[in-house]
Amino acid sequence: MENTIKSIIDKYEGDKGFLVPVLQDVQKELNYLPREALDLVSSILEVPISYIFEVATFYKAFSLDPRGRIQMQLCKGTACHVRGVPLIIDHVERELNIKEGETTENLEYTFETVNCLGACALGPIMVVNGEYHGQMNIAKTSRLLKKLAKESEKSEEGKS
């Protein structure tokens, strides 16, 4: 991990002003911001850990907790809202038994909402591991969740 973080910081020439991009890149590599990584950033950049926590908890893009293998992001922009996103949020929360922003215990699913993806014609939009699913409704969400569950079962079988 140390080498990864060193090389990220080197990319920004050790400039403390680039703390946000450094953390973005660390998160991209490690999927979240583990305490260990933040400590390393703190010592290499010579920035107090309290300051790093301030920044890491201020910006929504950062996660201090591990995130799931399947990352679901539901757009919560105004256009999606008026087209029924609150009902879909309820539905996903009920089906996965987690609240928005949470990860399932087995680290399979993370369910997040984002402010606006700017693809409003397709609203409501759900992005699953980078793949867009447009014009979502409750029925389509159910089908998507079933499909994901099946795939996740298969990958479990593959592992064992």
Binding site: K16, V20, Q24, V55, F58, A61
Partner: peptide, 25 residues
């Protein structure tokens, strides 16, 4: 280019400056 950190308030000019400077916005 500086990428934002997903904070709406950073669209406000002085918060945006803070964000570029590596502080919370």
């Amino acid at each position: 280019i500086v990428r934002g950190g997903g904070a709406f308030v950073c669209g406000e000019s002085s918060a945006l400056f803070a964000s570029i400077e590596g502080r919370s916005g």
